[in-house]
Each structure stands twice: as structure tokens, then as C-alpha cells.
Amino acid sequence: MFDFLLETLSVLILLSAFALMANKRISSYIRTFRIQSISIALAAGIMGIQSSQAEGRFDFLIVCLLIVALKVVYIPHLLHKTYANVKYKVEKDFILNIPIMIIICCGLVLFSYFALASIEGLGQGLLNLQFVNSVSVIWIGLFFMISRKKAIGQIIGFLVIENGLYIAAMLSTNGMPLVVDLGIFLDMLTAVMIMGLMVFRINDKFDSIDIDKLNHLKG
């Protein structure tokens, strides 16, 4: 039952990454990111219920609450605020057109199946196919960073990579120590705050958050 749910959620997370790729507007990126984070929080919650039933551990539930607080509520809110404060709102933002990008993403998923197929014991025990889905999310996150021109796209891409790494680690290790989780969240929070700040600075300097303009900085 739990395994089935987790499997479904990992596919949902992958799907949300695809959906992110197909999004055109910055406000919809943020929404899709929120949906992905909700799925991760659900996965953490399911694992938390499972482990509290089996072993009496409740640290997963704490993690689940933290994910909801940070990734579902606080960070999307912060990003919305940042976006609202930036003057220029030219919407078309990506370098290739969407169908081609979706096809490349399919290629990336295939690649991660191919590359990880050699891992011994894949598909049995803890290290099952959810792992492949999560790794695909990492690639898609990186590709998302490449494909968007506006700085907020890069922040979202970074967060998606982080989500992918986090879910991969969580599903394959059956829960990291709580200290590690807390460390990861703290890092991410700092990174997002700094990046949000940088977006303002970039906007001040170049009157745009188009990162293509950053190559004027080259010496």
C-alpha cells in the first residue's frame, strides 16, 4: 500500500517537473513548484506514518512539516514577492520552443534509466525505480535552469534540483538523520534568500533580470 503510494508520488513529482518545463509564465512556474513541493511533503508524510507505525520514529513528520512551511508556503511567497517587485515583466522567457524542450526532457529520463540500469539491486529492496524518477528530476531541473532567461527561472531550477536530490536521498536511504535534513533546509533557505537579493541587485544594475545581459560583466 505505502510502496504503491510512494511510487505514484514519485511519478507525480516527475510529471510536475515536465509540467514546469511546459510552463510559460513566471507565476505559473512558482505554482508548479508549489505542487511539486506538496507532493514531496506528502511522500515524507507517508514515510513518516510508515516509520512511526513500524519503529515509532516521528522525525519524518517533523521533516514533512518543515517542507510544508518552507517549500510550500515561505519560498513560493518570497518568489512571488520578488517577482512583483521587479519592474520588467516581458513574459516570453525560454530559448527553445516548448515541444522540443519536452522531447529533450524525455531523452533525459531515458538517459537516467540507461545510466542507472547498471546499479546492482535496482528494482529490489529500497533502491527501486523511484530512484530513477528522482534522478531524472535533477536533470530536468538543471535543464530548466539552462532553458530560462530570467533569473527567477534559475532560482526555480535550483530548487527543483534540490527537490530531486532530496527525494532521491529520502527514498533510497529510507530517511536520513534529522540533523542532515535540517542542515539541507538551512542551506537551501540561505541560498534562496541570497538569490532573491541578487535578483534585485541585477534588476537595479541592468534594468532587467535577463541574465543574458550579465555577459557585459566579462573583463
Binding site: F114, I146, K218
Partner: peptide, 28 residues
């Protein structure tokens, strides 16, 4: 220097992606 270090963040990100994919492939 100006071909590889173009100053464009997209290029740098592509370098990272390609490197990671190649390393994974090497491992395969």
C-alpha cells in the same frame, strides 16, 4: 578564453550538465 568563458550563465550551466551526464555515462 572568450569562446569557453563567454560570460553567459547558460553556457556555464550547459558545461555543468554535460560534465555530469558524461561522468554518469563513464560510470555506466
Amino acid at each position: 578564453a572568450f569562446r569557453i568563458q563567454t560570460g553567459s550563465i547558460h553556457n556555464y550551466l550547459i558545461y555543468i550538465l554535460v560534465t555530469v551526464l558524461l561522468l554518469i555515462l563513464y560510470n555506466r
